[in-house]
Design a protein around this nucleic acid. Sequence first.
RNA 1: GCCGAGGUAGCUCAGUUGGUGAGAGCGUGGGAUUCAUAACCCCAAGGUCGAGGGUUCGACCCCCUCCCUCGGCACCA
Length: 592
Amino acid sequence: MLSVNQKILVAVAWPYANGPRHIGHVAGFGVPSDIFARYHRLVGNDVLMVSGTDDHGTPIMMQADKEGVSYRELADRYNEVIARDLQGLGLSYNLFTRTETLNHTEVTQDLFTALLQNGGIIKDTMLGTFAANGKALPDRYVEGTCPICGFPDARGDQCDNCGNQLDPVDLINPRSKIDGLPPTFRPTEHFFLDLPKFREQLRGWIEAQMHWRPNVRNFSLNLVDDLRPRAVTRDLDWGVPIPLPGYDEKRIYVWFDAVIGYLSAAIEWAHNHGTPDRWQEWWLNPAAQHYYFMGKDNITFHSVIWPAMLLGYREQDGVTAGPHTLNLPYNVVSTEFLTMEGKQFSTSRGVVIYVRDVLERYGADPLRYCLTAGGPETQDADFTWAEFVRRNNDELVATWGNLANRVLTIAHRNFGAVPPQGTLQPSDQTLLDELQRAFATIGDLIATAHFKSALAEAMATAARVNHYVSEQEPWKLVKSDKERAATVLWTALQAVDSLKIIFCPFLPFSSQALHEQLGYTSVIAGPLEIHEQIESNGAHHLVLTCEPASWTGRWQPSELPAGQLLPAPNPLFRKLEPGVVQEEVARLLAKE
RNA sequence: GCCGAGGUAGCUCAGUUGGUGAGAGCGUGGGAUUCAUAACCCCAAGGUCGAGGGUUCGACCCCCUCCCUCGGCACCA
């Protein structure tokens, strides 16, 4: 276990503000990062967890054009929708902000300028692809006939039929996927991140990261072998402006400014708290550890491109510590993909389950449980409603919910309060010892990003306590030997109280509910709040935040005091009818 | 096409550097029990570890070939 007060940055991938989040998104970047952050806070480490919506980029422009609203309007709308999705799921960001802020613009421009000054960014001319409306068109939004195999619906970047990589200008009869009109091609000047310049530095750095998941490390090393300069800017009117005269028609493109969000959000967080320099405790302190969470489609940006940008920024001061020596990632934790009833998620094809719909109908914890227990941690995973109902009923309700409920019910009915400890027998002590060990075991698993095994271990511990209760039969003891019954129930309640903390990173809402059923009045962890933030230029935006410094939960065995009054218990989780499966599957089919 | 991941009990998956009879959860069958959301607890059955070769005293784990599934292949994030 890590020592307390370790500074940990939990950097979570920024979702596009182009629609509500579906459960595949949060299975990848959301729930794992939150489990990690909540655990480290319970341990006593200083966690800064940041993210926000990515308000720029082609998908947002396309969606706005489709709806006939401005880009900003669309981003505003979905920034709020997404913030509420994440709040409802209990994702405990210290700051969830957005890229359309003055602060983010300034930080992005600062990095751009610095990289340009020391040669990390170079200027070059490329052949641009333009839609009929004059805007830059990404290669993948161009379709046409493949010049190699004749496939009529090849994309500008690659032919799905023969697999060859293409250039949009090579397509026969090219057309825009957006409006169907033929694009035009003309040379255009842009800024490029000079990735080859950082090749050897990156290679050496990545090779040293033996604690990364092997797939991330190997994948990244492969990328480093074939780095080319990458265009930082686009011929667009949506995005962070280029901080140089004469470039009003161009913007910094989304991939460049999105990763900078990890830094700008930390700066915004510090500013919002009236301690404008505190971001440095995470970003300029070499002892701070930075963990990045994302889906596997995003590895390259976090293990190669963003580190290259950070290295380039550092070069202003050489290798000595200074205001530009920003920390590199300590770990890049990527998850695989979640499919839905065997199919890729696809909003356009209706293969989608929105977070808010699940929250509304079933609550946050069952979803968090399912996405962790059956999540795409090391390989692609399939979400099915049958599996959701099964895990909810046969695992969450039957093992953990039932344990809490049966222990609380017997204790409440017979004592009305936490009974006195009495004399512990070996069986009681053994159970308490096991709980104590569980904190260490499960804590280590979470700290090393093994969330699936950690949760399985927690459930196994709950099963162990169920075993103890069945074996001791306190419902009989209350009639035959009340003193022994008191000791057994005291022990079981300590175990349940400890499990409450162990489950808290995974299932924060039910842990809080249980906390109250155990007679406490404090808050373990929460609340998460959305409020408006006003910037120096008068602009305002919504932020999702929380104040973990005031949270009372601690990653340690129960100290539940005897005599504490126990209110009448309520089940922590609700059993779902089997009909839910059919109902939900029917909903999906209706969308397709 | 290139690169990569994966094919292990009915289902979902674990299986460090090759070594006593291959595991878990759920489901199934049986038992016990009734505090608990017919939940909990105990026991059991179930697999020639995708196919075929090879290396080895010995391979699910190493090498080769083949079959099947999936992802990436950069200006999409």
